[in-house]
Design a binder for these strands. Sequence first.
DNA 1: GCAAGGTC
Length: 853
Amino acid sequence: MKCVLMVAEKPSLAASLANILSNGKAITRKGFNGACSIHEWNGVFRDINVKFKFTSVCGHVSGLDFVGKYNSWNLCDPVDLFSCGVEKKEATPKLKMPQFLASEARGCDFLVLWLDCDKEGENICFEVMDAVSNSIRNVRSSQVTYRAKFSAITEKDIKHAFNNLQYPNENEAKSVDARQELDLRVGCAFTRFQTKFFQGRYGDLDSSLISFGPCQTPTLGFCVARHDEIQQFKPESFWYVQVTIDPEQKLEWQRVRIFEKEIAMIFFNIVKDQKEAIVESVTSKENFRSRPLALNTVELMRSASSGLGIGPHVAMQIAEKLYTQGYISYPRTETTTYPTNFDLRGVLKMFESSNEYGEDAKNIQNNFCQPRKGEDCGDHPPITPSKLASRNDFDNDTWRLYDFIVRYYMGTLSKDLKYRSTVTRFLIDGEVFTNTSNVLIDAGFTKVMTWQAFGKNELTTPFSKGDRVPIKDVKLIESQTGPPSYLTEADLISLMEKHGIGTDASIPVHINNITQRNYVTVEAGRRLKPTTLGIVLVHGYQKIDPELVLPTMRSAVEKQLNLIAQGSADFRAVLRHAIDIFRLKFQYFVTNISNMDSLFEVSFSSLAESGKSHSRCGKCRRYMKYIQQKPARLHCSHCDETYSLPVGGIARVYRELKCPLDDFELLAWSNGNKGRSFPFCPYCYNNPPFNDMTRGSGCNSCTHPTCQHSLSSLGVAQCIECDKGILVLDCTSSPKNWKLGCNSCDCIINCFEDALKVSVDEEACNDCGAQLLQVLYKQTNTPFSDGDDKKTGCIFCSNEFMPLIEKHKAVENRRLNSTRGRSSRGRGKGGRSHRGRPKPPKDKMAQLAAYFV
DNA sequence: GCAAGGTC
């Protein structure tokens, strides 16, 4: 029997599409990658009986990256990133997606692609075809591979798509390839250049990465634009006449306010001596506030931020969790209209038994309103609740978001809010004042969406035309115009949506980025206030090349890319043109960076003047400065060199010891009292002296043959927790604390408390191959039963050491293993070199010689 | 250590 492989963009969609197409008959099994399932059934495809297999990918199968050395920050000039090679790589290696697809496709004759119907989906179609090209013959043929085009996940739509299969659109897919390549080259080139440039000059930037991106930078731009408005705002004084009538009620002046005091005074003088206001007219009309459209992602994020105080990133994480647990429908959609056959009442029914919502759900069913017609974007149905939950099922924020989604859903099926608005016009010697009073007629959807409840302001006594109302008080009030506030997250989301910056799925990522990178902070009310770094960056772009931060930049690029999608321009030509433009922009940016730098200069302190005097430079013997702000560095202002330091923790001067290779003073890095620690040479850490030592290593990885701090001198045994590392004696906090620490993982073994001295012996243990240790105690407090103050033994095998070694599960295991090993196989696991002292590098003298040259 | 876009 012929076999048809069908592929959707995500596991959940594969399940629901298979269910529709098989009329519920599909049998499901889990795929070997643990993430995707395969749904199988027999049916008819193009008039023949076939077996169907429906599975999915998880988003993109592949992603783009630079080739080889261009991934390294130190091995190439950022400008090379505009011309160097790029290659496709597996997007998520642990999912083994190409392998999974290839194996499921084996033996299949046809491929039907059910990826989301947007350009990204079209691009993934071709990624899937690539992945199965060795499994399905002629996969590029339009007689083998088909594309289903659907706009809603409804039986009608899906079956229609199945009966009208097409071929995937290569032009649309290509336009995505172009976008990927352009974003990669431009983003990484600018990011690397400006990060290295500014980190090499300033010590208090408080940022480990100064990134640029075609979406994140305009996003930051919005926040800084508002900041600039606030800064440039000049308050203006204005005056208004405030009349209070009896019974007490303030009236609104029809002129609202006046910016010249003298003129305001004239009106005030007219009104102030009057005793009565005459009712000129009373008009009344019914107004309404519409119930909401069905909920989509952007609105969910906006409301979560402004109403619940939950940021978009976290909101989406919670929504994702609610979705995978079945409480709500798929939370990423732009659509704001329910599918035609959606069981609106069924969902309400589900809530009838709920303590929280039961009463509302019944009321709404009795007064059921058809939802408003929104937009169908052809992606997924709006976000709706799909399972009843109660308060105890979740933590507080999860409950609040779930509650919001339930109430919003009920709101969309409720009546509009209705109120009566009555405007009373008063005349006071020719001046017009009004009072507007609103009276609620029907709370409508705000009965469930209580946060939108109607603020009442009823007039205590209604008036009729011709009434003469006593005036209680007349005042001339002086006030000032105020600046706008910082942008709220909700405002920012709206701006991004309006300018097409990011997508519903990536908007929270960009906002999160600019906060994580320390360009903006989230203030009370989730308002986004730019930091000095954020402001200086945006102002710098504006000085050098304003287009870099303009929100229109993204859409201009998208426009070009759309030419590819429409087939009216050649992929290569458009891409080359766009890359050329950005390369020129980049080069212009680099040559004019001093314009941005002059702004940095004002706000940040140069490396030379930041940090504290710390340890000596091996080249000039002068003290270098220790800059503790992220990323921690040592800076020698005399040599104008900067040395990076291990991430986190603290690097203190290590007993004024020096590296025998370069004369730099050694430092002891430690990550808290009980954490890892090791000595290192700041020069070797950045410029490893031996081939078998990687950048970012301490002395505990150094193969120097004679230095007393090196791995060669202090290595004891292979690590008991990881495969790669070696346990090295760590003397940096001796004699208070002695410990063995792995030079690769976090494994630490504390030992020999209060010993005067611990050192690594020349000999190795006969039983397990570990290097022996010599331990010396004060005569007065030796722990050994025979009264000796000095012993040599094995940390794993010597009985008299056992009580002096921290109880460590892995140590116990190793002891057991080595005992067992002895009885069954003679001696340990067989004296491999890594067990004892690690082999010194083969040609160490040659390496040393090379280093000194 | 880098972008933006999918999704887990």
